[in-house]
């Protein structure tokens, strides 16, 4: 993250005229010297103008986000998740998540446009094997945890202290 969340909040408060006298001079001083803060200032104004401008045609953003989500590969979760079940979202939370999804979609589009690289269908040498089945929906491979642990132990570049010892995860010969 480029910038402290607090700094962005202060910037937002300043633009709303709600920043106190103590923090305002500090923020304005920061704006003079910090290019990131200047970009935030412009970004906030741009977003504000866009939200206010009712003349803009609908961007069909929801359908593009839905398509992007549809194209995302299914994520397999090794083992049991310790996460609590999701809480029902109130109106404010729903709006917040929608906003985040919209912004993330922009990031995805931006990244894809800016980066040359792997084609959509990576070149895969054929070895006579049939292609794997489509990514399995919600199926957990019982071996995944074991191989993840073995990789983290075996690769010098992986954070292996995060691997706990169990007879299943310690490789031996």
């Amino acid at each position: 993250m480029v910038m402290e969340d607090m700094e962005l909040e202060r910037l937002s408060a300043a633009m709303d005229g709600e920043l106190d006298d103590e923090n305002l001079p500090r923020l304005l001083g920061g704006c003079r010297h910090d290019p990131d803060l200047q970009q935030s200032w412009h970004a906030f104004h741009l977003i504000g103008e866009t939200l206010r401008d009712s003349r803009l045609p609908p961007a069909r953003l929801h359908s593009r986000i839905a398509q992007a989500l549809k194209d995302e590969p299914t994520v397999l979760v090794p083992g049991k998740s310790s996460m609590a079940p999701p809480l029902p979202l109130d109106g404010v939370s729903q709006r917040r998540w929608l906003a985040m999804a919209a912004a993330i979609a922009v990031v995805v589009l931006t990244t894809a446009l800016l980066r040359p690289g792997l084609p959509n269908n990576p070149v895969i040498a054929q070895n006579g094997q049939s292609a794997p089945a489509a990514i399995e929906n919600g199926v957990s491979d019982k071996d995944i945890q074991t191989f993840v642990a073995l990789h983290r132990q075996g690769s010098p570049l992986s954070e292996f202290q995060t691997v706990d010892y169990t007879p299943q995860t310690i490789a031996q010969r």
Binding site: M1, V2, M3, D5, L8, E9, S12, M15, D16, D36, Q39, S40, A43, F44, I47, G48, L51, V92, S93, R95, R96, W97, A99, M100, A103, I104, V106, V107, T110, T111
Partner: peptide, 20 residues
């Protein structure tokens, strides 16, 4: 206010956008 309209959850995302 955008923060009031979209919620503070937008802050890290805006930071991410600017970062990108």
């Amino acid at each position: 206010s955008i923060l009031k309209v979209l919620g503070k959850g937008i802050i890290p995302v805006i930071g991410l956008l600017i970062s990108g």
